[in-house]
Amino acid sequence: MANVFSEAFPIVASDYACAGEASAKIKSLLKMIGIDPALIRRVTIAAYEAEMNMIIHSKGGMMTLEISPDTIYLACDDTGPGISDIDKAMQEGFSTAPSNIRMMGFGAGMGLPNIKRNSDTFDIRSCQDGTCLKLKFNINQKGDRP
């Protein structure tokens, strides 16, 4: 199926000043093309959590948004250092964020669970060279599923 739109957003490690900008652009794009507000909310929450994970934990990477007639794809690829135990990382409340980051209100251990809860398809693979998160959101399904 041919994608009708694709845009990539570079994410810089530890760039807290620009944190959330990629997610804001994604939200604006979805709003501009008339996606259901409830679905926009789900994509925005997932995008923001993925963006923050890359800023806090990774060496940086790329978020890529692709929109086909029936699906929104969000791919998040970073360059490491990877997640050593994905099963633990998926548990609500588990976090490896350092104390200074927790003081800012991050590191609640809700990031990956929030992403999974808000996406229709969730796939994560990780090794020392990086983490690859692939999300799908069904456009034709009722937006406020979770």
Partner: peptide
């Protein structure tokens, strides 16, 4: 004060 909770 936890941003992920607020996002959710």
């Amino acid at each position: 004060d936890l941003l992920s909770w607020v996002m959710a």
